[in-house]
């Protein structure tokens, strides 16, 4: 009995060591990034390396704002992410309600079309999307980018799957009492779908915040850039200012990190549902 206890303890400690080593491996680039963002330039690649800065250089952060319109990037990214997400929630919940609670001919065929398009790689549609946005005169505008986010098939899919699990009898009962469908959606279905909505919101916010390709194609004025685009351009233009790149990258991650800490489950559920682009 005693030997079995010791054996279990050893296994437990071994497991714990592996877990911690893996965690360190996952965290290392982040830790190195944050510490590096406080180092003077010549310290970052000093041999032998120091994990901690020898001389802390807090001015790196201010320098990022002086070199590039970083504050603009922040505001632009936040604006695009918030408006993209809001519009998407509206159009997708209306559609999802129709697909799950209303009966009409061709419903399943139309839904299948929605599902089918989820397999299409962005590379196929990006050129015609660019052409459309250009013809609409929305090239180099934030609205053009936001518009493209409003009609994702994924949002329809996610909400529809959830709404299917809400019993139809709730809808029938409300109808008998004379409520119209907009009312039913707003006061019964959506309040019951908060977890699916939260998943969609966190996920789409993340998606839009982290998106690089669409802003790169659609935006050309520097002042209109998003964080991802700005960071990448920063790297191209000030390639040797490594510590500033690290400071900028750190700052770009903070909002997402905060949301992640508070809404972790929604992120994980959403990403597990397959809502992230490659």
């Amino acid at each position: 009995m005693k030997t079995k206890g010791t054996k279990n303890t050893i296994i437990f400690i071994l497991v714990l060591i592996i877990l911690v080593v893996l965690a360190l491996f996952m965290l290392f680039p982040f830790v190195w990034m944050v510490l590096g963002s406080f180092k003077p330039k010549d310290e970052l690649f000093a041999v032998p390396m120091n994990l901690l800065p020898v001389r802390w250089k807090y001015t790196n952060y201010g320098d990022v704002f002086r070199k590039i319109p970083f504050a603009n990037y922040y505001v632009n990214t936040a604006k695009i992410a918030v408006l993209s997400t809001l519009g998407q929630v509206v159009t997708c919940s209306l559609s999802a309600y129709a697909f799950s609670k209303l009966h009409f001919r061709g419903r399943d065929a139309l839904f299948l079309l929605y599902l089918g398009t989820m397999m299409i790689p962005y590379q196929v549609t990006m050129i015609p999307q660019y052409e459309l946005i250009r013809n609409m005169g929305l090239l180099d505008t934030h609205f053009g980018l936001i518009l493209l986010h409003w009609f994702s098939p994924f949002g329809v899919f996610l909400l529809r799957q959830f709404m299917l699990s809400i019993p139809d009898s709730f809808v029938e009962a409300a109808r008998i009492e004379g409520a119209n469908d907009l009312r039913i959606l707003g006061s019964i279905i959506l309040p019951l779908s908060t977890s699916a909505l939260a998943t969609l919101v966190t996920l789409k916010f993340l998606d839009s915040w982290n998106d690089y390709t669409a802003p790169m194609i659609m935006l050309s004025s520097k002042m209109k850039y998003t964080l991802q685009l700005g960071l990448r351009t920063f790297q191209q233009e000030f390639g040797v200012e490594y510590t500033l790149i690290l400071a900028g990258t750190t700052m770009s991650l903070i909002p997402i990190l905060i949301i992640y800490i508070f809404a972790q489950n929604y992120f994980i559920e959403g990403i597990a549902a397959g809502g992230v682009k490659g």
């Binding site: 996952m26 965290l27 993340l206 982290n210 990258t249 997402i256």
Partner: peptide, 16 residues
């Protein structure tokens, strides 16, 4: 911790 890289933008990950 293990899920953290999944929410980080590819650009940030690539730069770092």
């Amino acid at each position: 911790i293990y899920f953290l890289p999944q929410i980080t933008s590819m650009i940030a990950i690539g730069l770092v």
